[in-house]
Amino acid sequence: MKPLKFTVSCIALTMTCLLGAAAMPADLREGGAELTSTGDFGTEYLDRMVFLGESTTTHLRARGGLRPDQVWANASGTMKLDSATLSRPIQDAATGNLITITEAAESRRPEYLVLSFGLNGITGFIQNKDSYLNNYRTLIERIQSVSPSTRIIVQSVYPVAQASCQTDWKFSVPPETINAYAETLNGWLREFCPTLPAVRFVDTASVLQNEEGFLRPDFTTDGIHLTKSAYDEILLYLRTHGWTE
């Protein structure tokens, strides 16, 4: 595709994403199946959570102050949500053995499982909403089939920092476009979560953004990955947007 045509296409897609997000019904933005502001549920609430997601989730082990067994990850420390996700083994923090996500859910039966997928593969997801949401649905339904009492918390897709903060940019479109894509995915997730039982959406990405919607420069090491202070804010947001029935 010629550069000018590609640029126009990106701009058009970005505008469509922004207008689509603004048109969302108010109740889905402000409530519904979204975890809204509560009092501080404290660290005891966080202690009952397990996290599964991309590299920005895996880094909770080193920078979030969580126990190793609270963060499920494979040896690479990153994942992409697709039809292979349930097949690829993760490492059991307790034994070091390789197990599937299904096996981990069945043996650990976490009270809360906090999921975060969307940035890895985002340029593909934005073109195939059904595939993204179907893979999320398959993952959630599998977990709940082996651990029916687990409550699933789906995090919003995290933003990326502006171009001047990027040290190793790998996406084919600029940061502002990625952030527009993330906003679109977050709109999809807001509509998606109420369709499943015991699933809630939480907008943790909101505490990471500056006024222009970029990841705050002081929250990132390389424009994408997060600092300890960013994780402090994410975990505080989870504590203060607790799951109430």
Binding site: D82, S83, A84, L86, S87, P89, L98, S131, T138
Partner: peptide, 14 residues
């Protein structure tokens, strides 16, 4: 190399 068998839906995206 240690191998793991894939699940039935492994290629569903394709």
């Amino acid at each position: 190399t240690e191998f793991f068998p894939a699940e039935k839906g492994y290629l569903n995206d394709y």
